[in-house]
């Protein structure tokens, strides 16, 4: 494992912990898109189908369990927690799951490396992860009231994707036969979705003003 991959995973972990901590301590999920969180839970569930079958490393298994546990906990908090669920911006978070789920499923059935259930589900999770942030970005733009933690959450997620691209570049030059178009293209698209957010995030940071996205 190279430094970019490790840094990417740690940023990913930090993003999830920031969000979980925000929800748990402030008992509020305002500004957080339940749609995006549900999509991430599905991403992890479909990607880690073989978690107890295929063993890669202790590190991988632990991280997978953390991502599964945290994503389902966040969904549980927003949907079921007595206090937290009252702060959910339901009327603003209107993005339809199906608009993302269906194209990803069709694409995974058509473009995959191997037509088996496990592989198609894995490919589906890659495509879905690429676009799962969209409901969250739409919500941020709508509410215009972005608290620091939600901003940091999205920033860390974007940073994780950017670091994974560096990881692939590193692996491409250091490992033989390391060419994976599906993951790369989906990953690049996913990172590009954050470009706009990054721009405004750095602007607000540079000028030390509150982060606000243009309508």
């Amino acid at each position: 494992m190279n430094i970019f991959r490790l840094a990417g995973d740690m940023t990913h972990l930090a993003s999830v912990l920031v969000l979980l901590l925000k929800i748990h301590t402030i008992k509020s999920c305002s500004g957080v898109s339940l749609k995006t969180q549900e999509l991430y839970a599905l991403v992890f569930a479909t990607r880690y189908l073989d978690i107890f079958v295929t063993y890669v490393s202790f590190y991988n298994t632990v991280m997978k369990l953390i991502f599964l546990g945290s994503s389902f906990s966040i969904v549980w908090y927003i949907r079921r927690h007595r206090v937290v669920r009252r702060s959910y911006d339901k009327d603003q978070d209107t993005f339809r799951h199906l608009f993302l789920l269906l194209p990803c499923l069709v694409l995974a059935l058509v473009i995959n490396e191997k037509f088996t259930f496990k592989e198609v589900m894995w490919t589906f999770s890659i495509y879905l992860e690429a676009v799962a942030i969209l409901p969250q970005l739409v919500l941020l733009q709508r509410t215009r009231n972005i608290d620091n933690l939600t901003g940091q959450y999205v920033f860390l997620l974007g940073a994780y994707r950017a670091l994974y691209i560096l990881n692939w570049i590193y692996r491409y030059f250091t490992e033989e036969h390391y060419v994976h178009w599906i993951t790369w293209i989906a990953g690049i698209i996913q990172t590009l979705l954050y470009a706009d957010f990054f721009y405004y995030y750095f602007q607000s940071w540079k000028n030390s003003v509150k982060l606000e996205l243009p309508a």
Partner: peptide, 10 residues
């Protein structure tokens, strides 16, 4: 198998 080797990422 080639389809498996990139499954080592999260």
């Amino acid at each position: 198998s080639p389809a498996q080797e990139y499954h080592d990422e999260l």
